[in-house]
């Protein structure tokens, strides 16, 4: 994220809630369109028009919902940490709103990754759950999202809650490299990275294509949910401010 230019750059102008509401209202239909289109194409290719794995047979299709969910879980936490950093350093009002809006979405994506992973693990590894490094670190990530949500609700003062939560998100960023490299550092059941490697992807293009389409679909869905929740939060704050103003006007 670029630094907000004090003389009035893009991020600076976005700090005006009304302007953000207009921009997001314009952006929303496009994002919804991309989400629906990519989910349609991704699910068609993933569940129907892609080859089966010679070992895993049809269960390999769980990959098309599991892997993007896990990517999005990590992307959500990065978003949380970056918005926390921007909220603390530049006091950008939208960053605080973005953090508050991201946390529940991230928690759901993390849960989805764990849930689909368990469903996938049962037929391929023969168990719903193993205490392997990748699984455990993603479970920790889930609890960090919950901790973030909890600390946001633990204070009467909204601004104080936002600052504490932002700081927590920054401290928790140590988990991301642990998740990413857990499959390389420890010899575990979970397979190592195969989509992006320096030597090129080791996946067959027929499987890689639907996976990437699904990844775009998940990302667009994340964008839709994020904008929706941010708009909701901004409206809620506006209503609160109006109610305060009215209460103040009523008592002279």
């Amino acid at each position: 994220m670029a630094s907000p230019n004090p003389s009035g750059g893009f991020w600076h102008r976005l700090a005006n809630p009304a302007r953000f509401q207009r921009l997001s209202a314009w952006l929303m239909p496009w994002l919804v369109l991309i989400t629906l289109g990519c989910f349609g194409a991704g699910l068609y290719y993933g569940l129907y028009a892609s080859p089966i794995d010679y070992q895993q047979k049809d269960t390999v299709r769980i990959m098309y919902v599991h892997v993007p969910a896990a990517w999005l879980a990590m992307m959500s936490y990065s978003t949380l940490a970056i918005s926390g950093f921007v909220a603390l350093v530049w006091r950008h009002p939208l960053a605080d709103v973005a953090g508050a809006a991201t946390a529940p979405i991230g928690a759901v994506f993390t849960f989805l990754a764990l849930f689909t992973g368990a469903i996938w693990g049962q037929p391929t590894w023969g168990t719903w759950w193993v205490w392997d490094a990748r699984l455990t670190s993603v479970l920790i990530l889930f609890f960090m999202f919950l901790g973030y949500i909890a600390i946001r609700n633990a204070f009467d003062d909204q601004a104080r809650a936002g600052r504490a939560a932002s700081l927590l998100a920054i401290v928790g960023v140590v988990i991301l490299p642990i998740i990413k490299f857990s499959v390389d550092w420890w010899n575990t059941l979970h397979q190592p990275a195969s989509v992006s490697k320096l030597s090129g992807s080791s996946m067959d293009p027929a499987m890689l294509r639907p996976l990437l389409i699904m990844a775009v679909a998940y990302m667009a869905l994340f964008g839709v949910l994020l904008l929706l929740r941010m708009r909701l939060e901004l409206t809620r704050r506006r209503v609160e401010a109006l109610q305060m103003a009215r209460a103040g006007a009523a008592t002279p």
Partner: peptide, 23 residues
Amino acid sequence: ALIVGARRGGVLMTLLALPLYIP
């Protein structure tokens, strides 16, 4: 330090610290 002034500080403390204690 994060929970200074929070409601139900003790329970919140557990939720925040235990994930960081795992390593």
